[in-house]
């Protein structure tokens, strides 16, 4: 235990933890959306995220930016990030939809048991990861430096860089937007209806297939945005970038209460913070250990996660 280290670095650990948490939260939403509607853990979601990281890198390539170029001006950097968000979100959503149509929909039509879906999800994940692996020779790719590294503001050790601000602001905007979409719009009502009771929803005229496709697309969009900021934050990407992050994001979704959108957001944030504080307290090698012990401890007392389970029954 190194409490001194934790106290000394508390501001910075909090800031970087929130940033990482924002990325977890965005990816966690994809797990939670699909689970809420289908009761399916879409393990291939980590690869939806991975494809997004490459789509962003590709977009920056079109801007003539690579890991050796000088930082562009703020205007160009923001434009490049915006373009990458659009391209990565659309690409990820397309991949998510592709997985649903090719892997899950045929199983659903044949009334396959839940285990078949789970195995298919793991299989789809490996297929995508290995395809990306062989296309990229399993090589890591460096990401261009975009936003300035100089802190925007620094109050008593609470130094926050432009990258961190952008990540958190965009993540919050996406979360609020998604929440609004699911709570207030007609399509969102359809999602909640299917989540609560698929058969009754179908009787009431909700097109179940369309709703399912929609949640995959929404999850993909969120993962694409997360991918852009993960690229910027870690400074590189490679074919298996989604594996560990996917596991963490899934845990974050469980922590908050799987199937619950606000829970996923809260879970992501908490996991990011716990990890950072734990690495200061016990050393970075204990980071994942402590995070998962915390997860298990919490689930012992609140088996359905922090905010409860269901998308349909989530309290507003």
């Amino acid at each position: 235990m190194n409490i001194g280290e934790l106290l000394r670095s508390f501001p910075e650990l909090t800031v970087t933890g929130v940033t990482q948490g924002a990325i977890y939260a965005l990816v966690a939403l994809g797990y939670t959306l699909v689970y809420g509607v289908l009761r399916l853990i879409n393990f291939a979601h980590s690869e939806v995220f991975m494809v997004g990281t490459f789509a962003a890198l590709f977009t920056w390539g079109l801007f003539g930016l690579d890991s050796n170029t000088e930082r562009p001006s703020i205007g160009v950097a923001l434009l490049a990030i915006l373009a990458a968000i659009v391209v990565a979100a659309v690409t990820s959503a397309a991949v998510a939809l592709l997985i649903e149509v090719t892997a899950y929909r045929p199983l659903r039509h044949r009334n396959a048991p839940p285990l078949a879906f789970l195995i298919t999800a793991i299989g789809a994940s490996f297929v995508l990861m290995e395809v990306a692996g062989s296309l990229t020779v399993r090589r890591p790719f460096g990401v261009p430096a975009l936003l300035p590294s100089k802190p925007l503001f620094d109050i008593g050790g609470w130094a926050v860089t432009p990258t961190q601000v952008t990540t958190v602001v965009v993540a919050i905007a996406m979360l609020v937007g998604l929440d609004y979409f699911v709570q207030k719009t007609r399509a969102g009502r359809g999602i909640r209806a299917v989540a609560q009771d698929p058969n009754t929803a179908a009787l009431m005229g909700v097109n179940k297939s369309r709703v399912i496709a929609l949640v995959f697309i929404l999850g993909g969009l969120m993962a694409g945005v997360a991918a852009v900021f993960n690229d910027i934050k870690t400074g590189s990407t490679k074919f298996n970038v989604g594996f560990l992050l996917g596991l963490k994001a899934f845990s974050a979704a469980v922590l908050g209460g799987i199937g619950n959108l606000r829970g996923a957001a809260l879970g992501g944030l908490l996991l990011g913070l716990i990890e950072n504080y734990a690495s200061a307290l016990f050393g970075s090698n204990w980071r994942d250990f402590v995070a998962f012990v915390a997860l298990i401890a919490l689930l012992m007392f609140r088996p359905t996660g922090l905010l409860g389970e269901s998308l349909g029954r989530a309290r507003a």
């Binding site: 970087t16 590189s236 560990l244 690495s279 090698n285």
Partner: peptide, 16 residues
């Protein structure tokens, strides 16, 4: 401090 294989986020170590 220690890192692990396949780790991509080093925020804790960077801070230290």
């Amino acid at each position: 401090d220690k890192t692990s294989e396949k780790q991509t986020d080093f925020a804790g170590t960077v801070t230290k």
